[in-house]
Structures are given as C-alpha cells and as structure tokens.
Design a protein around this nucleic acid. Sequence first.
DNA 1: CTCACTGCAAATCGTTTGCATGGTT
DNA 2: AACCATGCAAACGATTTGCAGTGAG
Lengths: 152, 152
Amino acid sequence: MENRIEKIKKQLSSQSYKLTPQREATVRVLLEHEEDHLSAEDVYLLVKEKAPEIGLATVYRTLELLSELKVVDKINFGDGVSRYDLRKEGAEHFHHHLVCVECGSVKEIEEDLLGDVEAIVQTRWSFEVKDHRLTFHGVCEQCQTISSKVNS
Amino acid sequence: MENRIEKIKKQLSSQSYKLTPQREATVRVLLEHEEDHLSAEDVYLLVKEKAPEIGLATVYRTLELLSELKVVDKINFGDGVSRYDLRKEGAEHFHHHLVCVECGSVKEIEEDLLGDVEAIVQTRWSFEVKDHRLTFHGVCEQCQTISSKVNS
DNA sequence: CTCACTGCAAATCGTTTGCATGGTT
DNA sequence: AACCATGCAAACGATTTGCAGTGAG
C-alpha cells in the first residue's frame, strides 16, 4: 500500500505534479477499492469521509490527472457514468470485464486473453495496437443458479 | 436498401410498433451512413435535412427503440457521447472497432475474432456470454505512414 | 511573491421527461 | 373515443469551468 503511494508520488513529481493531501486521499480510496468500479461520485463520497472539505471538482480533476498518467483507467459500461479503475502494478494492458446483465455485477479478468487476436489485427489490418477494451455481457454464475431455480 | 427497410418494418410491427415517417427517415439515415458512427446529434442533423420538422427527442426515442430491437447497437468510445451503429444483416454479435488515437478514425471489423476467447470465459469463469464489446486503441495504417515521414 | 491547487457555484452538454397536440384505428 | 407517437421546452445528471482564496516553495 504505502509503497504504491510512494510510486505514484514519484510518477507525479517526475512531471512536476504534487501529491497534495486531497490527491493522496483520492488515491487511497482507489487503492482500498481496487475490486470495485467506482464512479467519480462514489470516489467523492468515500474521500469525503477522510477529508470532508474536499470538493467534487477536485476529485474529477484528480481522476483526470491520474488517468493521463495511466495510473487509473477510465471506463464506461454504457450507463451514463464514467468509472475509474486502478491499473494493476506492471500491467501494460487494460483488463477485461464481465458485466452481468441480470444483477449488474462486474468481474475483472486479469489475464490477457487477447494476445492472438491482437496479432491478427496487427497483421491483417495493419493496425498498431496500443491498448484494448474488452467487455463481455452475459449472465454471471450466481444469476444462472437463481434463474434455474425460478424456472424449475 | 428497400428490403432492409421492409425487414425492419416487419420487426417493428411484430411487436406492434409502427414505422412512422420520422422513424423511417431515421432508419434511412442510418442505412446511408453504415460506415460512420453517428451520435444522436449527428443523426438528428442528417434527418432534419429530409424531415425538417423532426425533433431531437424523437430521434433519441427512435434510436432507443431500435436499440431495444437490436437493429442498432449503442456504443461509447469514451468521449461522453453515445454512438449508434446499424447491426449487419444476420450478425448475432457486436462487431469490433479499431480506434486511432492519432486521427480519431474508427474502423469496423466484421469478423468475430472472439470465438475462442468466449469459450474460455464460458468454461473458466462460468460466465454465460451473451455479447461482447471489443475496441482496440492504437495507430491506424495511414497515421503510421504519416508519423514515419515526420520522424525521418 | 508566485503559481499550482483548491472549493464553490455557475455553466455546459448529452440525454430524458412532461405535457399538450395530432394522427390512426 | 382510445391510444400511440410527436414536437417543444423544461428538467436532469454527469462533468467542466471561472474565479477568488489558499498554501507551499
């Protein structure tokens, strides 16, 4: 935890940005909720618990900044809200997501399943792939169980 | 063209919706711009050329309806705008996209490259895949050429 | 003293909704 | 007459911006 903060601090200062208390509080919230997919509003409310004076605009500005530095990834699951996801240590690619159309839960897949596909795209369409976004829509294990009960 | 309109008309009436003049004009615009990825605003402006009385709200309502019927897919490339994409005839899956980070162009890939990956997700995570969204971010062929010129 | 950073409120932008009207059946 | 669909304007929610105040270097 602390060393990840330290790392982010260095990343910031290398581009002459400061890790202000507000920014640190925001980063800490993100670290404590790595599994979730928080919206800016979510982050704001959580940060407010630690630093009540913080403003929503600052949270937006911080998330924007972290996004530029590729510390977080900004995603969009189609509801009109942006969500922010800590990039895992050393991950060079965005991870994949499984979105359940029944309960709305979101699961992350860390493995990169797209190696082959990227190679195909690269050669067949002469497209130099830098990153990707992959989301599956479907029914999660839990909801499959529930609906099979209902239907029996 | 006409037979696709006819088909959509049938699809609508099978669920007791009507293909009103406004809806037809909207569908025609989408058909004439299959390659593009129009936002609701874009569609609105184009429809207005044919049917000046149409309101923006109607365009939104029509696109929403077509989206439910799976005639179009609603996508989001991360700028805060929804875009609407005609589903190809008989396609059961969403097609993939190549977004160029240099010039912003968007290219479509019709082939479904995810068959294997879906099988993996299905078995390994017990997730029943219904559909997917796959977007690659990178540099398109044209921009690769340009930047290699600049750098030489 | 300077300048990046902040909080607040107002502004913006895409999208949705309420409502009165018009057209079909 | 009942009802779906429309246009318009107002409402809405997420995000951005202008600006004056603050604090670290």
